[in-house]
Amino acid sequence: MGKAFLVLVAIILMTYCLFDLRATPRDRVQHLPKWGWAVLIVLAPYAGALLWMVFGVAKGRAGGSPRPGPRRPLGPDDDPDFLRGL
């Protein structure tokens, strides 16, 4: 039972990391090319997956601060469209 659980966890972790690798843009992948990370994840499922999650993907943007989103009204009384309808 314990071995089956470890194999199942390895398969799930490997599948998640491979899909994450596939969805990650090439310019955000660090230290290895995408094919190198895929080989590492498949050949060493636990170590490769953990290395991918910690070191493989660049976190955030190059500037270091998150991109500001569009400013939205905080409440109905701050919304010009709502106030126009009163």
Score class of each variant (00 low, 15 high):
Pro73Phe: 08
Pro66Thr: 11
Phe55Arg: 14
Ala49Cys: 14
Ala62Val: 13
Val57Trp: 06
Asp81Val: 03
Asp27Cys: 12
Arg84Phe: 05
Leu74Cys: 03
Arg72Thr: 10
Leu50Ser: 07
Lys3Asp: 09
Leu86Ser: 04
Pro68Ala: 07
Pro45Arg: 09
Gly85Thr: 08
Arg84Gly: 05
Cys17Trp: 01
Pro33Met: 08
Gly36Thr: 10
Leu13Phe: 00
Asp78Val: 00
Lys34Gly: 15
Val54Gly: 02
Met53Asn: 06
Thr24Phe: 09
Val9Phe: 03
Met1Gln: 07
Arg28Glu: 15
Leu13Thr: 04
Arg22Phe: 13
Pro73Met: 06
Gly75Ile: 00
Ala47Val: 15
Pro70Val: 08
Leu86Cys: 09
Ala49Thr: 15
Ile12Phe: 03
Ile11Tyr: 01
Arg84His: 10
Gly56His: 13
Gly63Pro: 03
Val29Cys: 13
Trp37Glu: 12
Ile12Tyr: 01
Asp77Phe: 01
Leu83Ser: 10
Val9Tyr: 00
Cys17Ala: 09
Gly63Val: 04
Ile41Tyr: 07
Lys34Thr: 14
Leu21Ser: 06
Arg61Asp: 11
Trp37Tyr: 12
Leu51Trp: 05
Asp79Lys: 03
Pro66Ala: 12
Asp78Thr: 08
Leu13Val: 02
Ile12Met: 03
Met1Arg: 08
Ile11Ser: 01
Arg71Glu: 05
Ala62Thr: 13
Leu43His: 05
Val57Met: 10
Phe19Ala: 07
Arg22Leu: 14
Met1Phe: 04
Gly69Lys: 06
Lys59Val: 08
Arg72Asp: 03
Pro70Cys: 00
Ala62Trp: 10
Arg71Pro: 00
Pro70Tyr: 03
Val7Thr: 09
Pro33Lys: 13
Leu83His: 06
Gly48Met: 07
Gly48Asp: 11
Leu74Ser: 07
Ala49Ile: 02
Asp27Leu: 14
Pro73Cys: 12
Thr15Ala: 14
Arg72Gly: 02
Pro45Thr: 13
Met14Pro: 00
Ser65Leu: 08
Leu32Ser: 14
Lys3His: 07
Trp37Pro: 11
Leu18Val: 02
Ile11Ala: 07
Val57Gln: 12
Arg28Met: 13
Arg67Glu: 14
Gly85Phe: 05
Asp81Leu: 10
Thr24Gln: 09
Gly69Glu: 14
Ile11Lys: 06
Val9Met: 08
Thr15Trp: 06
Val29Ala: 08
Ala62Lys: 15
Ser65Ala: 12
Arg28Asp: 14
Arg72Cys: 02
His31Ala: 15
Ala49Leu: 04
Asp20Gly: 01
Leu18His: 05
